[in-house]
Design a protein around this nucleic acid. Structure first.
Length: 685
DNA sequence: TTTAGGG
DNA sequence: CCCTAAA
């Protein structure tokens, strides 16, 4: 029994990964998230950055995370440092930013980056455009931004035939403390546009860049404030391989969360799977232009590498809502001018639904698309070369990647520039450390890299409705540096990556590198070995889940520094503790404590743990009566087993004998005591 | 909040 | 040490 118990707790205490508990933690987090109203921070620019990093490789200056200017959010590749500088000085609190722009920048529920579309097999733009077009929230819509978009696009285009399909995620800010008003006619417009697109998708096959970026873009966007984002749940990187049969454009169903709506009249199911419209819906917060106040200026940015469950849940929810609102979609489509509609046509089309899975992957069978015959496949850079004709190929359009989670907490007194840098660093920390691509099939991760696609089930005739890709970090902690000008607390943590997607190699790397690759920029994180004695905390289950030994644990788990002023960045663990209590550190009872406990129990008996606590552990704040009860339980158990089986600090046999005696006595005494109203409670003394 | 027990 | 049903 003891052994069993020890195994359960682990020989090094309770820090060993309690799987069930970890699961609970995750659940709590989810719950918390949902309670929070799904509001998520959309960092368009952040996406851009990520996309830039991933798609365009290195060599380009990273875009800034611009939160000050809505018009620049579209600048996926191009940074707007100049503007940024202007606004950095002002603290959030006092900043008189352009609210519209501001909101727009943080509008999205999910940070969905419809960044460059990588065409893997062809240079046709159909898919790419679908992505871009279907996202009304895209910043590309405004005229002043077109320039920037153009440049970005050009940049991309020049390089490896990437297309910039900029899109924004849907807004999902509802009843959030951070929610600003998101409702606007422009949003409605966007919605309508999208809906219309669905209706006309069949007619559209190809679009040119100009259409996408400068023409029918929702001008509404320019004047429409959206919502304030509190967190970024995910970042999608859209890549598009182009193998779409003309006239039958694939429909990509998005799995973004849908905002809860209080009104349906204007709401359109943009994500309706049936229509195949994967557009990202701007959501309305509050009703009809009513702006909500922004009580909290605390930002949480999360790049969420979603769990499969979340993923699926999102999809389901989306479907549900879409069904629910389907009829409205039709109406909206009718009402909207074709000119604007056409913009979204590519992305919609129920007839293409089967071509794309809910993960945003478009699977097209080889050679089935006559429409693209006229466009010779242009091999993209790198390994995505064209396949030899004749063989069955699996063609994928990867609409998005799921990105690891980041959690950022920044004080409202922080400057905008600080926020930008923080987000940027968080992202770069993940990406900079090197990312892997994971493949999910039917929700399960395919770990065997040696399997052929055929063996795995990814064949050319597979509809790929369950194929997904993820970005996986190589580093486990996101090194976020504190803003120089702002020493206040920031929380940035990249967590649960290992827990959710624990590639063996990554885990290994983490162990090997330990502090080295994660600490340099983390003044606030103490990566020293974890010592239970002086810190009343323990690594979160998720953090521990992949750790096998105390040594590894100590190497991997950062502990917040004790000096408050030096603590700029703390692990999410600390943050999570506020969400759900953290497991206390194990504190083995000393012999003296056992002695006191035994004595108290002898006198008071079992079943009066509160009294025992008061009597013998009054000053031991970390010993609760539950602890004492538990300890007694284990003491009794220990006393009953052979000495060889006992572990930990040996308890004098004398004490154990007393334990058994007292336990036996009180076991008998207890029932009787009820009747006697406890006259002889101290018989043993 | 405490107890009592299972985890 | 955690979690909780019960009291």
């Amino acid at each position: 029994m003891v052994l069993e118990k020890r195994l359960e707790y682990g020989f090094n205490g309770y820090q060993v990964p309690p799987t069930p508990r970890a699961a609970r933690s995750v659940r709590r987090r989810c719950l918390f998230k949902s309670k929070a109203g799904n509001r998520q921070l959309c960092a368009f620019d952040l996406l851009a950055t990520v996309a830039d990093k991933i798609l365009l490789d290195t060599g380009r200056s990273p875009p800034s995370v611009d939160t000050s200017s809505g018009r620049e959010q579209q600048a996926i590749v191009v940074s707007s440092v100049e503007k940024e500088e202007k606004n950095e000085a002002e603290p959030f609190e006092e900043k008189s930013f352009d609210r519209d722009c501001y909101e727009r920048n943080f509008l999205f529920t999910e940070l969905v980056s419809e960044a460059p579309n990588l065409k893997i097999c062809s240079n046709e733009l159909t898919c790419a455009q679908n992505d871009a077009i279907s996202r009304p929230t895209s910043g590309i819509t405004t005229s002043d931004c077109s320039e920037k978009v153009g440049s970005a696009e050009q940049l991309v285009d020049d390089d490896c035939k990437l297309r910039l399909g900029i899109s924004s995620p849907s807004v999902d800010v509802v009843s959030s403390d951070c929610g600003l008003s998101a409702k606007s006619e422009s949003e409605d417009e966007s919605r309508k546009q999208i809906n219309n697109a669905s209706a006309n998708n069949k007619n559209l096959t190809k679009r040119n860049r100009n259409d996408m970026h400068s023409s029918g873009r929702p001008e509404a966007w320019d004047r429409k404030p959206s919502a304030f984002i509190s967190s970024i749940d995910s970042v999608k990187f859209p890549f598009c391989s182009k193998h779409t049969p003309s006239g039958a454009l694939p429909v990509i169903r998005d799995y973004k969360k849908l905002a809860t709506r209080d009104d349906d009249e204007n709401y359109s199911a943009l994500n309706d799977p049936s229509t195949g419209n994967k557009a990202c819906r701007p959501s309305r917060v509050g009703d009809h232009g009513t702006k909500k106040t922004l009580p909290s200026k605390r930002f949480k940015v999360t790049l969420d590498l979603k769990d499969d469950e979340h993923y699926n849940a999102d999809i389901e929810r989306c479907n549900y809502l879409n069904r629910k609102n389907n009829f409205k979609c039709e109406r909206s489509m009718r009402d909207y001018p074709f000119k604007k509609r056409k913009f979204y046509d590519c992305g919609s089309g129920s007839n293409c639904d089967e071509g794309i899975d809910s993960n945003g992957i478009c699977v097209v069978e080889n050679g089935t698309n006559e429409g693209e015959r006229d466009s010779p496949p242009t091999p993209p850079r790198g390994e995505h070369a064209s396949f030899p004709s004749g063989n069955p190929h699996v063609k994928l359009k990867i609409k998005s990647f799921r990105v690891p989670e980041l959690f950022i907490e920044i004080p409202e007194t922080a400057t905008v520039g600080c926020l930008k840098r923080t987000v940027m660093k968080a992202v770069n920390a993940v990406l900079g450390g090197g990312i892997c691509v994971g493949v999910l099939l039917q929700g399960k991760k395919i770990r065997d890299d040696n399997k052929t696609l055929l063996q795995t089930g990814i064949s050319h005739d597979n509809k790929m409705d369950t194929l997904g890709f993820t970005l996986e970090p190589r580093v486990t902690e996101a090194p976020i540096q504190l803003c120089p000008e702002d020493r206040s607390r920031q929380l940035v943590h990249n967590s649960q990556l290992r827990a959710r997607y624990p590639p063996p190699s990554i885990t290994h790397d983490a162990v090997q590198q330990g502090n080295g690759d994660t600490t340099p920029d983390l003044p606030g994180i103490n990566f020293k070995n974890f010592k239970e004695s002086d810190y009343d905390s323990a690594p979160s289950p998720s953090d521990m889940s992949l750790q096998k030994t105390a040594t590894e644990t100590e190497a991997l788990v950062p502990i917040p520094a004790t000096k408050p002023d030096a603590l700029a960045v703390v692990p999410l663990r600390t943050l999570k503790r506020s969400e759900s209590a953290q497991r206390r550190i194990r504190r083995p009872f000393t012999v003296a404590e056992v002695e006191a406990l035994v004595q108290a129990v002898e006198k008071l008996g079992t079943g009066r743990w509160r009294d025992v606590k008061l009597r013998a552990f009054e000053n031991a704040k970390h010993r609760t009566y539950v602890d004492l009860k538990d300890k007694w339980k284990t003491l009794v158990h220990t006393a009953r087993i052979a000495p060889q089986q006992r572990r930990g600090e040996p308890v004098p046999q004398e004490l154990l004998d007393r334990v058994l005696t007292a336990h036996a006595y009180w076991s008998q005494q207890q029932p009787r005591q009820h009747l006697k109203s406890q006259p002889d409670t101290c018989l043993l003394l």
